[in-house]
Amino acid sequence: MNNLQSNGVIYIVTGENCSYEACQSAISLKRHNPDLSITIFTDQQVQEDCFERVIPISTYIYNSCRQSAKLSYLAQSPYQNTLYLDSDTYICDDIRELFMLLEKFDLAAAHASQRWGVEYTVENIPDCFPEFNAGILLFKKSPQVEEFFNTWLSLYQRDLKRNLVSNYLPDQPTFREAIYHSNLRVATLTPEYNCRFIQPGFVNKAVKILHGRHFNLSNIAETINVNNKRRIHYMGMRGNLKIVKHHQDLTQVKQYIRFRQSLQQRGWRETFVLALKEIFKK
């Protein structure tokens, strides 16, 4: 793994609420990753001592659009290898292995659980090309990555002028567009490193990063990581996380499928004979 001094985490937030969220997220990060350096870009006064750097955001840059601030400051990360986190994240475990990806890739992100393709389409990109969630980004510092961020910001500002989506303009569609037309080596993170628990999903192994707002994120982390087997999660009506355990032993399922296939291909008589042979073998 690279020297930890070259690895770090950044938050880019505006407004009191998001700054407070970032502080809580950073506390959870430090709990499991005490040697990771954290920098916050913000327009607020931050008192938490879990940040190694606090860099002020000029209000004229984002002009009341927090996504513009994010896109403007990503390239200003003080680290060679950077993990960007949205403020509404909660770190459940050691996540330093993420930086190993940057030994082979330029950027990494997880597939988006919510895609904007219906309301916000991008021309000349096939539907089969995925939309990534831009709330958790891993990237290395390089001229190519900096050029990518500049392109992303330009595309986002272009669509701000178009006013494509009322009241809120997501940054995921332009992120997808910028990636599609770039030459970056992009790795896809598994859902365990960007678990959008507020929407139905599937995870396998331990969830490392929760992404979403909830009044008790520590409880969500405990519930979703009650075991690390295959499981489906969804949010209940009262804000409590529901877990559906996936059936682990597939032996009976496979036997039933073989039985049905044998009936179709061989008929009852030959299937019965083969079944007897299997039984007596055991």
Results as ranks from 00 to 15, higher is better:
residue 267 G to P: 06
residue 15 G to M: 02
residue 160 L to H: 04
residue 120 Y to W: 11
residue 2 N to G: 05
residue 140 K to Y: 05
residue 213 R to F: 12
residue 167 N to A: 06
residue 228 N to Q: 14
residue 130 P to V: 00
residue 35 D to R: 08
residue 132 F to I: 00
residue 150 N to G: 01
residue 41 F to A: 09
residue 90 Y to H: 15
residue 133 N to T: 13
residue 249 D to L: 10
residue 87 S to T: 11
residue 156 Y to S: 05
residue 265 Q to C: 01
residue 59 T to M: 07
residue 102 L to F: 03
residue 67 Q to F: 13
residue 236 G to P: 07
residue 186 V to M: 12
residue 252 Q to H: 13
residue 111 H to C: 09
residue 86 D to Y: 02
residue 22 A to K: 09
residue 130 P to L: 00
residue 50 C to W: 01
residue 218 S to A: 13
residue 151 T to Q: 15
residue 56 P to M: 00
residue 229 K to L: 04
residue 275 A to N: 12
residue 249 D to T: 06
residue 104 K to D: 15
residue 228 N to L: 03
residue 192 E to H: 03
residue 269 R to D: 10
residue 120 Y to S: 02
residue 98 L to T: 10
residue 67 Q to D: 11
residue 170 P to E: 07
residue 253 V to F: 12
residue 13 V to K: 05
residue 33 N to L: 08
residue 198 I to G: 11
residue 92 C to V: 03
residue 174 T to P: 00
residue 47 Q to N: 15
residue 212 G to C: 06
residue 70 K to F: 08
residue 116 W to K: 07
residue 278 E to R: 13
residue 35 D to H: 10
residue 89 T to C: 15
residue 65 C to Q: 13
residue 210 L to A: 07
residue 188 T to V: 15
residue 266 R to N: 15
residue 165 V to A: 10
residue 243 I to C: 00
residue 191 P to K: 00
residue 166 S to M: 08
residue 279 I to S: 06
residue 74 L to Y: 06
residue 278 E to V: 02
residue 141 K to C: 06
residue 185 R to G: 01
residue 212 G to D: 09
residue 81 N to H: 15
residue 10 I to E: 05
residue 75 A to G: 09
residue 277 K to D: 11
residue 62 Y to I: 08
residue 70 K to I: 15
residue 203 V to F: 02
residue 31 R to V: 03
residue 103 E to F: 09
residue 17 N to A: 10
residue 198 I to W: 13
residue 4 L to Q: 12
residue 135 G to K: 07
residue 63 N to R: 13
residue 76 Q to I: 02
residue 66 R to C: 12
residue 263 L to N: 06
residue 258 R to N: 12
residue 196 R to K: 14
residue 18 C to W: 13
residue 33 N to Y: 06
residue 232 I to G: 07
residue 202 F to W: 11
residue 259 F to D: 01
residue 152 W to L: 11
residue 128 C to A: 14
residue 229 K to V: 01
residue 273 V to C: 03
residue 32 H to F: 14
residue 174 T to F: 03
residue 271 T to F: 02
residue 262 S to T: 02
residue 181 H to T: 10
residue 80 Q to E: 14
